[in-house]
Simulated assay, not measured.
Amino acid sequence: MTRPPTAAQRRVIDAADPVTGRLRGTEAQLAALVRHGLAFRHPRPPHDHFLTPAGHRTRDAAPQPQAAARPEPNGVFAPRVGGAETADDGPARAREVHSAWQGLLELRRMTNPDAAVDRPCGWERAHLVRAAALALEAAGHPPEGPDRAGYRVRATPQPEAVAVYEADGERLRACEATLERAGWQTGEYTEPRTRTRYLLASPRRV
């Protein structure tokens, strides 16, 4: 890509499904994104177009101001990583989480070389914290919030690894089981200074 996308192409990129990267646009817009290496046309019917890793980076590098400030009210789904987020456990949120998880499984099927859905795909390795949080939230684990305990997913200095914290030991082990079912390899560790137990989780490759 030698030049930035046009305003019309940028709108197509920004409107892509936040999890799968599925695109909607005119044939000319989609073809232009393919030529620039920002999208690819899936070889299997219905031959939808999806963001490439470069396309995801382009979208993430310059998010729309409204989406960056208030992602969920503006319609952009974001998995809850735990922390200061307010928790909405209503039916609408449950439907969004279920849809996002099903979309991620479909992305695995389409982008893993052997169409496997039991292990993470390239998008998950590029968005470790969001991918792990989605797996946990989709399985029904509550994220930590201002007024409740729950999981927290945080980035780590290690490549392809996130840390998952949960104050309750039994719930931490339940998070470990969920991530392993979702195709992650995990290990339980203790922080030397605080003695806090946490999981170190990485996407499984085989």
Rank of each mutant, 00 (worst) to 15 (best):
15 A>P: 04
15 A>D: 03
17 D>Y: 13
17 D>M: 14
17 D>G: 14
18 P>M: 07
18 P>E: 00
19 V>M: 01
19 V>C: 00
19 V>R: 04
20 T>S: 12
20 T>M: 09
21 G>I: 01
23 L>N: 02
24 R>F: 04
25 G>A: 11
25 G>P: 07
26 T>F: 05
26 T>E: 02
26 T>A: 02
27 E>V: 12
28 A>Q: 14
28 A>Y: 09
29 Q>E: 03
29 Q>W: 02
29 Q>M: 13
29 Q>C: 05
30 L>P: 04
30 L>F: 04
30 L>M: 08
30 L>K: 12
30 L>S: 08
31 A>K: 15
31 A>H: 13
31 A>W: 00
31 A>P: 09
31 A>C: 12
32 A>P: 07
32 A>G: 07
32 A>K: 11
32 A>R: 15
35 R>E: 00
35 R>I: 00
35 R>M: 03
36 H>N: 11
36 H>P: 03
36 H>W: 09
37 G>H: 13
37 G>E: 15
37 G>S: 14
37 G>K: 12
38 L>T: 00
38 L>V: 07
38 L>M: 12
39 A>M: 01
39 A>I: 00
39 A>H: 04
40 F>W: 14
43 P>S: 05
43 P>V: 08
44 R>G: 13
44 R>T: 13
44 R>W: 12
44 R>Q: 14
45 P>G: 07
45 P>E: 12
46 P>M: 06
46 P>F: 09
47 H>T: 06
48 D>R: 10
48 D>S: 11
48 D>E: 08
49 H>F: 05
50 F>L: 07
50 F>R: 07
50 F>H: 09
51 L>E: 02
51 L>N: 04
51 L>P: 07
52 T>D: 13
52 T>H: 09
52 T>Q: 06
53 P>L: 03
54 A>M: 02
56 H>L: 13
56 H>Q: 08
56 H>N: 09
57 R>P: 02
57 R>E: 11
57 R>M: 05
60 D>A: 14
60 D>M: 11
60 D>F: 07
60 D>N: 10
61 A>H: 06
61 A>T: 03
61 A>W: 02
61 A>I: 08
61 A>L: 04
63 P>G: 12
63 P>L: 15
63 P>K: 12
64 Q>F: 04
64 Q>N: 10
64 Q>L: 14
65 P>N: 07
66 Q>C: 14
66 Q>M: 13
66 Q>P: 08
66 Q>Y: 09
67 A>F: 10
69 A>F: 11
70 R>Q: 15
70 R>S: 15
70 R>D: 15
71 P>L: 09
71 P>N: 10
